[in-house]
Simulated assay, not measured.
Amino acid sequence: MKRLANWRLLSLFAVLALVLSGCRGENFVSALRPAGEVADMQFDLMKLSTYVMVGVILVVMIIFVIIFFRFRRKDDKDETIPKQVEGSHKLEILWTSIPILLLLILAVPTVSATFNLADVSPMDKKNSKALVINVRSHLYWWDFEYPGQKLVTSQELVVPTNERVYFNLKSLDVKHSFWIPAAGGKLDTNTDNINKFWLEFDDKRSNEAGNLFYGKCAELCGPSHALMDFKVKAISRDKFDAWVTAMQDIKEPQKAQSDLAVQGQDIFNKSCIGCHAVTPENKLPDTARQAPNLTNFGDRSRIAGILKHDKEKLKQWISNPEPYKPGNLMTGKYDEMSPQELDALAEYLMGLKVQE
């Protein structure tokens, strides 16, 4: 019975391994479905190291099986001592050379890729035409500044495809980590220095993913660390330029389009404007940005990075955000709003759009 139970357990693990081997995730959030140059390089390194490890395991297992059957004692009375190979120079050279060779196979492409990925010289050149984005991480949201375009957005990063996009990363409270799984590996955002790197989004694979990717915080930063998401819109250069132009045309807060939205705008100006900006050119210093920029809030695909983008979810978030993101800084500020005020404020915010 004990042996039967062990076989059942082994079968269960085998089935689970088979099922989990197919868990590659969605296109927009899976590191196993690369969508750009950086992700391709890192995925190739991952495959190379996997092939080397599997090869080593197979060779060791084959040697083990051969030795087990060939050199096992066939008779309990047989006390013959097999030929000893201790001190064999040939074997010493062999099992010293093989690890060195495997190390070189892994090290050479890894070092080459590391130096390639660390090359951010184009963004530091004078009068550079490279697209540079300053990423600022907060508890628990993201701020994206386009210094060349004089724009600031939050929670949704917009980038052109088929070209390198350069990032300056910094945190304004605690250590976070900027990670877009489908585009490339993560890099920390620190409070005392700026990290730099670049990513590139492939146009074809971006289209296959619906031009939308997920970004996440990859450094444990507090109770809502797992909910510190942002969205990435990867679009063609023409569409990106059109988006930039539409954002730059907003010189003052957008006007409400209905009577209910007018009431909401009045509530926003009295209760929310002290923390949230509704113009894309945010001239405030980094330390003065207390909450996400809402200029294009109506164009977003998620509320707070995690909730469905509709008025009902927005009202739930405004009235009581704590259940959705524990520890966020907005909790307790709007819990006394009446249902009519929430309706008006939601109507105004959902109308903040820069592109139809």
Rank of each mutant, 00 (worst) to 15 (best):
A5W: 13
W7G: 11
R8S: 10
L9S: 13
L10G: 14
S11W: 15
L12R: 15
V15L: 15
L18M: 14
L20W: 08
G22C: 11
C23S: 06
R24D: 05
G25K: 06
E26A: 12
F28P: 09
P34F: 04
F43Y: 11
L45M: 05
S49V: 03
T50P: 02
V52S: 04
M53D: 07
V54T: 13
V54P: 04
V54Y: 12
G55E: 09
L58T: 10
V59A: 11
V59Y: 13
V60R: 08
F64M: 11
R70A: 02
D78G: 06
T80H: 14
P82R: 01
S88T: 02
H89T: 11
P99I: 06
I100W: 15
L101G: 09
L104W: 07
L104Y: 08
I105R: 03
A107Y: 11
V108R: 13
T110A: 09
S112T: 10
A113L: 05
N116I: 12
D119T: 10
D119P: 08
P122R: 05
K125M: 10
K126D: 09
K129F: 04
A130K: 10
L131N: 01
L131I: 06
L131W: 01
I133R: 00
R136M: 09
H138I: 07
L139R: 09
L139F: 08
D143R: 15
Q149R: 11
S154V: 04
T161F: 05
N162W: 12
Y166G: 01
F167W: 09
L172N: 12
L172S: 11
V174K: 08
K175C: 08
W179K: 07
I180K: 03
A182P: 02
A182D: 02
A183R: 02
K186V: 08
L187R: 11
D188S: 09
I194A: 04
I194G: 03
W198G: 00
W198F: 04
E200R: 12
D202S: 06
N207A: 13
E208T: 14
L212C: 14
F213Q: 04
F213P: 05
K216V: 14
C217Q: 03
A218I: 11
A218L: 14
C221N: 04
M228R: 02
F230P: 00
K233F: 09
A234D: 01
R237Y: 12
R237D: 10
K239I: 03
F240N: 01
F240L: 02
F240C: 02
V244P: 00
K251S: 07
P253V: 06
P253W: 05
K255L: 12
Q257M: 10
D259E: 12
D259M: 13
L260K: 15
Q263P: 08
Q265F: 01
K270C: 05
V278W: 03
P280I: 11
P280H: 15
K283I: 10
A288H: 13
L294P: 03
T295D: 07
R302D: 09
A304G: 07
K313W: 12
W317T: 01
W317R: 01
I318L: 07
Y324P: 00
P326R: 03
L329I: 11
P339L: 09
E341L: 03
D343R: 00
